[in-house]
Design a protein around this nucleic acid. Structure first.
Length: 486
RNA sequence: GGGGGCGUAGCUCAGAUGGUAGAGCAACGGCCUUUUAAGCCGUGGGUCGAAGGUUCGAAUCCUUUCGCCCUCACCA
């Protein structure tokens, strides 16, 4: 049935009978594959370890490729240097086995730096075959479900995740250099807040209470502003119990930053310089390819009011003086689904999200959103109908909202109540995100300094910086439907 | 949840109008002492995602179902 595995098990048995442990322990490797090539010296003694990814037999000689995390090095194994028995045992090795070798470097006739192997030690016998060496692994499902195979075979995937790691490291460096403190706040919360999304629920037996996985860390970070930490950030997972898509994974990495005494503009400046810094450090360019378009991160990024975007798109100057019925009619003509229950703000936002936002390819800060949409932000001085916020849009999707944070506890309570009284959208009976967090309000009553805050979807940021077109390509183990059978 | 596409050997893929499943790589046996997608000779390998139906006959047509991809909805 499973013929390939049977054959490998047979080899494993044979090795065991010869006294070879097919799952060896420590192997002191002094050299990486890359080091063998970069620090090449004829006859240099090396010891390297890694996975066999190609074996080319030539009678009394064998060439093999050994791959470690630094790259690939060719092995050259000869019967006259290994001895007859050891050489014969090479037949018991398979593609995918992990071995350690000792030998010395030389260059072949074709100019390939190789290890003349004197000793080869099996460190781990692979019982599963590797995907095809030339075409690699393309099957999306296997690539996501068995990411290790994807990583073994597709070098560019490995490189992308290295890049992700560097991006996250650079974010920490960037913020720490500017005096921000990294903190960790609860992922399990009695009340999920800071956003409007359906939460995941769990139960904490010891306290006999329902808990939620956080949908955002916001309300806890603000408590820290109250506590006197003036510049904080948290870079970690949040969870939302919503649908999967190219842009959504139920657990995703979010960076939230708060700066006391700042506002939405200080945050805009911070976000702009940080993303540019990341692109320079990690991509080495500000021109980022996204499929067939190019995102140009060069300053200055566009800043435009929500109102002006809408008016501009609809080629009018006074969209907001329309009645709700008139708005609904225009939206209908744009092929948008509008229900009679929708308010003017909701209809307008529908137009924004479906028609305007997707067209914002170059970095754009959208300013002054309607207050109803953002319950945790401060109202604008001149216009109480809008809040002092930005929404950074790149490549047609929202990357980072930022606010001048609301620090008025009385106003905050009113906004929470307003939000609570709105009927939840159909099919979302269990939300929990709309219960009022009294403990948070008490914190605000204690006095929170004015502050600027922002949240950046790190997965989406990585998508832009790597040109990936699905969030699944930037998450090592993206959520898929669990599979019970194989 | 709606719409569309896909699912054939371990991997990458062929399989017009229905006629009883193929290639390359991988595997196995043999030859080969500087190859590198090594080469040459030979061999094995399939519940054609699953179940049901139409038919003399189904990978192919129909229905149901599972999974993945795209898209819409939900997701401030």
């Amino acid at each position: 049935m499973d013929e390939l595995k049977e054959q490998r098990l047979k080899k494993l048995k044979e090795l065991t009978e010869q006294g070879v442990n097919p799952y060896g322990g420590r192997f002191d490797r002094r050299d990486s594959a890359a080091a063998c090539r970069e620090e090449y010296r004829e006859e240099k003694k090396v010891s390297v370890a890694g996975r066999l990814t190609a074996i080319r037999g030539h009678g009394k000689t064998v060439f093999a490729d050994l791959r470690d995390s630094s790259g690939k090095i060719q092995l050259y194994l000869r019967r006259d240097t290994l001895g007859e028995d050891n050489f014969a045992n090479l037949k018991l090795l398979d593609l995918g086995d992990i071995v350690g070798v000792r030998g010395s470097l030389f260059t072949t006739r074709k100019g390939e730096i190789s290890v003349m192997v004197r000793e080869i030690i099996l460190l781990s016998k692979a019982l599963q075959p590797l995907p095809e060496k030339w075409h690699g692994l393309k099957d999306q499902e296997i690539r996501y479900r068995r990411r290790y195979l994807d990583l073994i075979v597709n070098e560019e995937v490995k490189e992308l995740f290295r890049k992700r790691s560097r991006i996250i490291r650079e974010i920490r460096l960037f913020l720490e250099e500017r005096g921000f403190l990294e903190v960790e706040t609860p992922m399990m919360q009695p009340l999920p807040g800071g956003a409007a999304a359906r939460p995941f629920q769990t139960f904490y037996t010891a306290l006999n209470t329902k808990m939620y996985l956080r949908i955002a860390p916001e309300l806890y970070l603000k408590r820290l502003l109250v506590g006197g930490f003036e510049k904080v950030f948290e870079l970690n997972r949040s969870f939302r119990n919503e649908g999967l898509s190219r842009k959504h994974n139920p657990e995703f990495t979010m960076l939230e930053i708060y700066e006391a005494y700042g506002d939405c503009r200080t945050m805009m400046e911070l976000v702009e310089s940080m993303i540019i810094h990341l692109a320079e450090q990690v991509c080495g360019t500000l021109q980022l390819n996204q499929g067939d378009t190019v995102v140009n991160l060069e300053r200055p990024w566009k800043r435009i009011r929500y109102r002006d975007l809408i008016n501009g798109y609809l080629k009018t100057t006074d969209w907001f003086s329309n009645s709700t019925a008139e708005m609904a009619e225009v939206a209908g003509r744009l092929d948008l689904e509008v229900s009679p229950a929708m308010s003017a703000v909701e209809i307008t936002h529908e137009i924004y999200e479906k028609c305007v936002e997707p067209g914002l390819i170059q970095p754009t800060f959208v300013l002054e959103l309607p207050a109803e949409l953002v319950p945790l932000a401060r109202r604008s001085e001149g216009d109480p109908g809008v809040v002092d916020v930005f929404e950074l849009v790149i490549n047609g999707f929202e990357l980072a909202p930022g606010y001048s944070e609301l620090n008025d506890p009385i106003e905050q309570r009113r906004r929470f109540q307003e939000q609570e009284s709105r009927p939840p959208p159909a099919g979302t009976e269990e939300r929990g995100g709309e219960k009022i967090d009294e403990d948070f309000l008490t914190a605000l009553e204690t006095g929170m300094p004015p502050a600027g805050g922002t949240g950046i979807g790190i997965d989406r940021l990585v998508m832009i910086l790597t040109g990936a077109n699905s969030i699944r390509d930037v998450i090592l183990f993206p959520q898929l439907r669990p599979k019970t059978d194989t």
